[in-house]
């Protein structure tokens, strides 16, 4: 019992420090600003541009092409969250790149590694910190979305929107966890960012690769795809296998990070 309290308080200590460093870091604000700008821009383009959802639906009405009624809120949720997912692909490596590279550069890894605190606790605290920061990046977008939701007729099914955002955050947690592992491998922040981006790219497009492969192997690989499972979430499907996949990425990232820090201590010279 006592040890559980110790573990939780240690996780909280790391978590708080991590958050502090994000909110004190100009780089984090820069990343958030770009994210907000692009996300807002995408939203406006998606809804109001000449090729946007509204224009298309109006065009369809005028032309009398009412083959199937178009559920605009549904279309919006799906497309917009899909865009946010792609945008996150670029932003997340930038958030995770410094998680361990900075510790190594500052020598603070030596402090953490000689404190009565396990590698797991450090990794989990850090991951919670960076996921929290990502959530605070997504929150302001909800204000924008709420404008659309309010003006919408037919009304939005908020369940879809909620599930979609949950999917986004889960996917982000998986990517950040793997990114954390990559950042624990190197002292170079830039290298960590590039490698993480490459990995994310692979995980996004892996479905396309898998479809070229026949048989169980292709099917197995296609299940690793982030995009496929994320799309299920944005379509309002509570995708249990996707949930498990994202959580597996999280656990895998944590595990590998803890191991790599342990190994790093053993081979260091």
């Amino acid at each position: 019992m006592n040890s559980i309290i110790t573990v939780i308080s240690n996780i909280l200590a790391i978590y708080r420090r991590e958050l502090q460093s994000y909110f004190a870091s100009p780089l984090a604000y820069g990343i958030a600003t770009i994210f907000w700008l692009l996300a807002g821009f995408l939203l406006v383009v998606l809804v109001f541009s000449p090729d946007g959802i509204l224009a298309q639906s109006a065009f369809a009405d005028q032309a009398g092409l009412q083959t199937a009624p178009l559920d605009i809120p549904y279309e919006f949720t799906q497309i917009y969250l899909g865009l946010l997912g792609s945008l996150s692909m670029f932003v997340l490596p930038a958030l995770s790149m410094g998680l361990y590279t900075e510790e190594r550069k500052q020598g603070t890894l030596e402090l953490l590694a000689t404190s009565p605190i396990t590698n797991w606790v450090v990794a989990l605290g850090k991951l919670l910190g960076v996921v929290t920061f990502f959530i605070t990046m997504v929150l302001p977008l909800l204000i924008l979305e709420s404008l659309i939701v309010n003006a919408s007729d037919p009304p939005f099914d908020l369940k879809f929107l909620f599930l979609g955002h949950c999917g986004l955050i889960l996917m982000a947690a998986g990517i950040l966890s793997l990114g954390m592992f990559i950042s624990s491998l190197t002292e170079s922040t830039v290298l960590a960012a590039i490698l993480t981006f490459a990995l994310v790219l692979v995980l996004f497009v892996i479905e396309g690769v898998a479809s070229g492969l026949q048989g169980p192997l292709g099917e197995a690989i296609s299940h690793l795809s982030l995009l496929k499972h994320y799309n299920n979430f944005t379509q309002g499907v509570l995708d249990i296998s996707g949930l498990i996949l994202f959580l597996s990425y999280v656990v895998l990232g944590l595990f590998l990070t803890a191991q790599s820090i342990e190994a790093f201590r053993f081979q260091r010279n």
Partner: peptide, 17 residues
């Protein structure tokens, strides 16, 4: 680890704190 305080060669400090 519970019994030691350790100052490494380079002080382990977080510059933003």
């Amino acid at each position: 680890r519970q019994n030691i305080g350790y100052l490494p060669e380079t002080p382990p400090l977080y510059p933003d704190m």
